[in-house]
């Protein structure tokens, strides 16, 4: 009903590193977004230290992957993931 062309806020997957134990469920559910580092912890494929370091703890989720991201949040054995928006 609103006329203002508000762009949909970008969905972000936030990683709480104090909880993450690198169990690997999120990296299986979101292989397009997440790889695993040499210790098993999720590593964002986009965003690098050279770019914006913040993108590695708050990973932008394309609309097509929102369902998989919601599954990852629900299934994370350490409850280390949250969906947020910018």
């Amino acid at each position: 009903m609103t006329n203002s062309p508000q762009p949909e806020p970008a969905a972000l997957l936030h990683i709480d590193w104090t909880r993450c134990d690198g169990r690997g469920l999120c990296t299986e559910l979101l292989p397009e977004l997440l790889a695993r580092d040499e210790w098993g912890y999720p590593l964002a494929r986009t965003g690098s230290a050279a770019g914006s370091a913040a993108e590695r703890s708050d990973i932008a989720i394309p609309p097509a992957l929102r369902g998989a991201a919601a599954d990852a949040v629900a299934l994370c054995p350490r409850q280390a993931l949250k969906l947020t928006s910018r």
């Binding site: 580092d37 230290a49 050279a50 914006s52 703890s57």
Partner: peptide, 18 residues
């Protein structure tokens, strides 16, 4: 390694060390 740890902690300690 410095690139790998940057931006991946709850505080700036890994970033600062890198």
């Amino acid at each position: 390694l410095a690139d790998l740890v940057t931006g991946r902690g709850s505080c700036s300690h890994p970033d600062g060390t890198a």
